[in-house]
Amino acid sequence: MAEPSWQETLRVRLVERNAREGSYAPIIEQYRRLAQQTKLLKERNASLLNAMGSSRPNPSSSTVFVPGTSEDNPVRAAYIASLESQISSLRDELATVYKTQGQNAQRLLAMNETLREKEELSRVDAEGLRKSRDEIALLRKKVDQHSELMAEKDRTAQILHDEISTLQLELSQIEDRNQTLTKDNAKLLQRWLDAKQAEANRMNEANQFYEDMQSRKQAIQDTNGSESGNGDLLNEGGTTMMTDGMPSQTGTDLNLTPNG
């Protein structure tokens, strides 16, 4: 979740202030050391001046300072005191330096540990980045293969579409031929039915004619049986000549079939 703008502004200003103040810290430390050394030098000079003032011979006094006696030289004592004070200050400063050095060593160890952790994190990130790049390369390869496969499928689909169009055209032509053949078959069937109907009509007519001939034959036979003295003549072809001059067929000439 993003921080509010005023908090971010305050943080940035604090960081800038710390950076600005931290940039003058070495200079301030040098000035502090110089001031401390100046103070020590002033104290030493004051001690030396006091010792010089106390070492001057007093005309009213009978006591005269003799070098090499058992009494301490005031100048030397003041100088020694100044040196001891300076040594003490230097020892304090050295202790401070040692303490700072120890803190710096601790900070260095902490920074080394932090650096090691950062390097480990960097190594892990680098390994993750390498794996991510490998995955990206693999995915790109799969994408390329998929694109090639899709292109091949598109080409196959286009070929199938062309074949389907061709088959649809052939199917349309076949349907047209089937419709034409259906119409032709219907016509042929109608013609066949008409022919069969005509043939049946002819058969019926032939049967009717046959029946009529049989009836006439029977009538003629009956007439011949009743009128045997009319002098009918039977010619060689089986034709009976009636007295009134009308020919009639008998025997084999009247052997008609239903087919005519």
Rank of each mutant, 00 (worst) to 15 (best):
Gln168Glu: 13
Gln106Pro: 00
Asp125Ser: 15
Ala198Lys: 02
Phe209Arg: 07
Lys141Pro: 00
Phe209Lys: 08
Thr182Glu: 13
Leu115His: 08
Glu199Arg: 02
Arg191Thr: 09
Leu139His: 05
Gln106Ala: 11
Ile136Tyr: 07
Thr182Ile: 11
His161Cys: 11
Gln197Arg: 14
Asn104Phe: 06
Met150Lys: 04
Glu120Gln: 11
Gln179Glu: 09
Val143Ala: 03
Arg107Pro: 03
Val97Gly: 00
Asp176Tyr: 02
Asn207Leu: 03
Thr182Asp: 07
Gln197His: 14
Glu170Lys: 05
Tyr98Thr: 14
Arg202His: 10
Asp144Phe: 01
Leu193Asp: 13
Met111Ala: 13
Ala105Gly: 02
Gly102Ala: 15
Glu163Ile: 04
Glu175Val: 05
Asn185His: 07
Ala137Tyr: 06
His161Glu: 15
Gln197Asp: 15
Gln103Cys: 01
Arg130Gln: 14
Arg202Trp: 04
Ala186Ser: 14
Ile159Met: 12
His161Val: 06
Leu171Pro: 02
Ile174Thr: 13
Glu113Cys: 06
Lys183Arg: 13
Gln101Gly: 06
Lys187Gly: 00
Ala195Glu: 13
Lys118Val: 03
Ala157Glu: 02
Ala151Ser: 08
Ile136Phe: 08
Asp176Thr: 05
Leu115Gln: 06
Val124Met: 12
Ala126Glu: 12
Glu120Pro: 02
Thr114Arg: 10
Asn185Ser: 06
Ala126Val: 09
Glu205Gly: 02
Arg116Asp: 04
Arg155Val: 01
Ser147Trp: 00
Ala95Glu: 14
Ala105Lys: 07
Arg130Thr: 04
Lys118His: 12
Glu148Asp: 13
Gln197Lys: 12
Gln190Gly: 05
Lys131Ile: 02
Asn104Ser: 12
Asp184Leu: 01
Leu139Lys: 07
Arg202Ile: 02
Asp162Arg: 08
Ala105His: 09
Lys153Val: 01
Arg133His: 14
Asp144Lys: 05
Glu152Leu: 01
Asp194His: 11
Asn204Leu: 13
Thr100Pro: 03
Gln145Leu: 04
Lys153Asp: 01
Asp154Gln: 10
Thr180Val: 12
Arg202Met: 09
Leu115Cys: 07
Thr114Trp: 07
Leu94Ile: 14
Asp154Glu: 15
Leu138Ile: 05
Ala151Tyr: 02
Thr96Gly: 06
